[in-house]
Design a protein around this nucleic acid. Structure first.
Lengths: 181, 181
DNA sequence: CGCAGCTTTGAACGGAGTCAAACTAAGTGG
DNA sequence: CCACTTAGTTTGACTCCGTTCAAAGCTGCG
């Protein structure tokens, strides 16, 4: 490992693998977010990432990090903030993977995505998923088939409208009620 | 939130709660380790911790952190390293909670503990758990009863010897084979 | 057109949860 | 020192959510 990366445009899935090849996706990153932070300490990349669409990266060599730390104390705090919020993300993920039902997981996931698109200036109701059903399952700790079934059920119940990757959130409130955040 | 904490002696369980009160234990900390790092960014404590035995804490006010960052660049890197390895821990946890069977989880947990005791100079084969079966389950994302059953099974199969909190690891190798790390 | 990769849906199975009861072990107070 | 309480552990029986395996349906692309 010699650098961390920031996304200029495009989106990625980050994941870890067990010895026998099982995958756990740890997050989906979009433009402006960082990747590879988990490995600052060890100096080895244990996380991998894969682009979900054409994308562009900005490489930040470790040596630059040291320089910035030395010369710009506000940078230190900022980086620590990014690391800290990453930890926060993982805490939510752990709560989800350890204690939530499949239904709660997908509801939470859709609301998270929605909120994220909103802060980026996109519509929080209508958006296009950049990842497959299988990817969603691999992130939520459930099978891709279960994700499909839930999409269908949410649709039957009038919570969302989904046609392949295109998602339309009809009732954020009822979705929030399902999520039990 | 006004400070983070380091453990002087004793041990803790850290956890997060869902709205409806479900608990996910995110880790067990022992002397020399830090707590509260997840909340540096938000400035609010979303993590809670509870002592598992008589313990003593060292409080580190946030203002001190800023001073240290300003005056001691090596401290910045060190703190970033701690944060980064915390992220690394959560990645393993996510892999465990998302993709492993109950059996694999407990085997992994016992080996982790064993390794941790070893680095602290204690016996890696024989140690006393500071947490209950329920706590272990709440950490591993399984029911306390399942933990009990697995303890019994591991014992029947000659992998460990456990009498209440006292654990003796008989066959680390076979345990490692079960863990599938 | 036809292939390849998603997505969707069905049927059957199984691992772990839940509920409940019995069994320690360690205090606590009379 | 013993009866009593309390918290944790262990085990059993039953249930159910989500997985697995399989087949069929879409969509887009070469």
């Amino acid at each position: 490992m010699h650098a961390i990366h920031a996304i200029r445009f495009g989106s990625f899935k980050s994941y870890v693998l067990s010895q026998d090849g099982r995958m756990q996706i740890t997050g989906f990153q979009i433009a402006g977010e960082a990747m590879g932070l988990a490995d600052l300490a060890s100096g080895r990349h244990t996380t991998e990432a894969q682009a979900l669409e054409p994308a562009s990266l900005c490489e930040i060599p470790l040596s630059h990090l040291d320089n910035l730390n030395r010369e710009l104390p506000s940078f230190s705090r900022q980086l620590q903030g990014i690391l800290s919020s990453e930890i926060h993300h993982y805490q939510s993920l752990a709560l989800m993977l350890g204690r939530k039902t499949a239904e709660e997981r997908l509801a939470t996931f859709l609301l998270d995505l929605s909120a994220r698109y909103k802060t980026r200036g996109f519509s929080p109701q209508t958006f296009s998923l950049s990842m497959s059903r299988d990817d969603i399952g691999t992130y939520l700790g459930i099978a891709g088939e279960t994700v499909c079934r839930l999409f269908s059920r949410f649709q039957e119940e009038g919570l969302i409208e989904a046609r392949r990757r295109l998602v339309h959130i009809l009732s954020p409130d009822r979705l929030r009620a399902l999520a039990h955040n």
